[in-house]
């Protein structure tokens, strides 16, 4: 139960730090809103719903890279050493992942709301299924990007490395997400989407398991 206690404490710390500065959430929110607005102004003549769907996921992808990569890249060496002494590596990884998932959930929900508001014709017929895709997306983005940002921060070479390392890994997830969201846009019955939901679930379990196995090696300098 030591682990659960540590995780709870660390999540509390992350949320508190974020609440004090409100930098990440506001920054990424503004980033998402201005990107959506830019896309709206540049693609306004495009009427195809599937293009809007793909565009939404591309915007989410870049927003989440920006949001999640903060988790390790932002911390100083001293901060990392401090949490290294205080908590087990598993607790650090789990707390960061859970915190990022919460952050991404808030962000994607607001983004989806804004997106349907701006693109009036976009509103998918099966909004619940679309929201399931959004939730699965938030979880998968944060599990993959948390680990990759840890690798990038240890390599000591922030932004570009983060993008190079995470894109090939996230592409399979992104393809599944776009397919799932497309089912919702087309208004297909839920039975057609169980394959994708199951696969996404499996990929996430795989990612979390390998991250938990590998993170202790990464964390120890």
């Amino acid at each position: 139960m030591q682990l659960a206690k540590e995780v709870k404490y660390l999540i509390h710390k992350e949320v508190l730090l974020e609440w004090r500065s409100k930098y990440t959430i506001n920054g990424v929110l503004l980033y998402v809103v201005s990107t959506i607005f830019t896309c709206y102004l540049s693609f306004v003549s495009l009427g195809d719903k599937l293009t809007w769907n793909a565009l939404f996921w591309v915007i989410m992808l870049f927003a989440s890279i920006n949001g999640v990569s903060k988790s390790f890249l932002q911390e100083t060496k001293g901060q990392q050493l401090y949490s290294y002494i205080l908590a087990s590596p598993a607790a650090v990884l789990i707390s960061k992942t859970v915190y990022n998932t919460i952050l991404m959930l808030v962000l994607t929900t607001i983004a989806l709301g804004f997106y349907t508001l701006v693109f009036d014709s976009f509103t998918p017929p099966d909004l619940l299924l679309y929201y399931v895709a959004v939730v699965m997306g938030s979880i998968s983005f944060s599990t993959v990007f948390t680990m990759v940002s840890a690798i990038a921060s240890k390599a000591g070479n922030g932004g570009m490395l983060m993008a190079i390392l995470s894109f090939p890994i996230i592409i399979p997830v992104l393809i599944l997400l776009i397919k799932l969201a497309k089912n919702a846009v087309d208004g297909l019955p839920w039975e057609n989407s169980y394959d994708e939901i199951g696969m996404l679930f499996l990929v996430n379990v795989l990612t979390v398991a390998t991250s938990l196995l590998l993170f202790p090696y990464l964390w120890r300098d």
């Binding site: 990759v148 690798i151 070479n157 090939p168 890994i169 090696y217």
Partner: peptide, 27 residues
């Protein structure tokens, strides 16, 4: 391979790139 080029210190490079390799293989 680019990740390997980004790190100069040999021990560190071995460790971090091994971690990325194992992480990427299931994908």
């Amino acid at each position: 391979l680019i990740l390997r080029n980004a790190i100069d210190e040999e021990q560190k490079r071995a460790k971090i790139s091994a971690i990325y390799n194992i992480f990427a293989f299931p994908m």
